[in-house]
């Protein structure tokens, strides 16, 4: 595991030396701080509005970080040829792949923790309340970012960063509309058989990422639906299973790739 940890650490070190990491984080935090200046609705929903908008911003920041990093690490190291020095050592390619993925998620986790702290301080300072429940939403954002990163990294074994980012975006959209759009497309008998077949295929193989989106529930203090530990464990299991599948597939392809 030393090699996996070394690879993960190298991603963390690399990210902390890149301006883009700080730029994305700072932009997100700045927008978060500007939310209270939005033309507000009724006074009673101000705190809900702040929490929902801030969690939305945090989601975008985390997904961008995860997808951009996952899409660029392998093509970047190939382009710079730093992979030659690394993979000629007594390490396995899957160790490199897994280590880099863990490193990406460590960077996302740091960014999310910073966002959580800022959000807690902001809500506390503005409304005098402490909302530890926000951590649940931050955790599910992390889970969703993990699935997206694993997809982007799988694509990056052979494709360019831009294509990977686009594919990850498409994946995100498809996984969020599957419960509604894909289900209807699959079950509507007036649709062409091919469309129904494709919709059904995607419906059954794609994860339902919309289920991981608990921002609204948390923003409204779980008044309608309470997110318990069981739900979080289930979401974690879904995210881990799908990420593991994509990581295993990516590592398998990377193992066979000429460098």
């Amino acid at each position: 595991m030393t090699a996996v940890a070394a690879f993960a650490w190298s991603v963390l070190q690399d990210a902390l030396h890149r301006k883009v990491f700080y730029a994305i984080l700072a932009f997100s935090l700045l927008l978060m701080l500007l939310i209270p200046m939005l033309p507000s609705a009724s006074v009673g929903v101000q705190v809900d509005l702040l929490r929902e908008a801030a969690l939305g911003l945090t989601s975008i920041m985390a997904f961008l970080l995860a997808v951009i990093m996952a899409s660029t690490i392998i093509p970047g190291e190939l382009g710079r040829r730093t992979l030659y020095n690394t993979l000629s050592r007594p390490v396995r390619r899957w160790q490199y792949y897994l280590g880099k993925f863990i490193g990406i998620m460590a960077v996302v986790a740091i960014a999310l923790l910073v966002s959580l702290v800022v959000l807690l301080i902001l809500v506390g300072a503005k409304f005098g309340t402490f909302n530890p429940g926000l951590a649940k939403a931050i955790f599910t954002i992390f889970l969703e970012a993990m699935v997206l990163a694993s997809v982007a990294m799988l694509a990056s074994v052979y494709l360019s960063p831009l294509v990977c980012i686009l594919l990850a975006g498409l994946f995100y959209v498809a996984c969020h509309v599957k419960g509604d759009f894909l289900y209807r497309a699959m079950t509507d008998s007036t649709n062409h058989a091919l469309l129904r077949g494709l919709s059904g295929f995607l419906y059954y193989i794609l994860p339902n990422l919309e289920r991981m989106n608990i921002n609204e529930t948390i923003a409204h203090s779980e008044r309608v639906f309470r997110v318990g530990a069981g739900e979080l464990v289930l979401l974690s299991a879904i995210a881990l299973v799908f990420s593991a599948i994509f990581i295993a597939l990516g590592a398998y392809l990377f193992e066979r790739r000429d460098l």
Partner: peptide, 28 residues
């Protein structure tokens, strides 16, 4: 085995000492 590729490239934000420590960890 030790390998020197043609025109070796490194992560240039690192110092030689840090880079070699990183490779040392990878070499066990």
């Amino acid at each position: 085995v030790g390998f020197l590729p043609e025109q070796p490239y490194f992560d240039l934000y690192l110092t030689p000492r840090k880079l070699l420590h990183y490779y040392g960890r990878l070499s066990g």
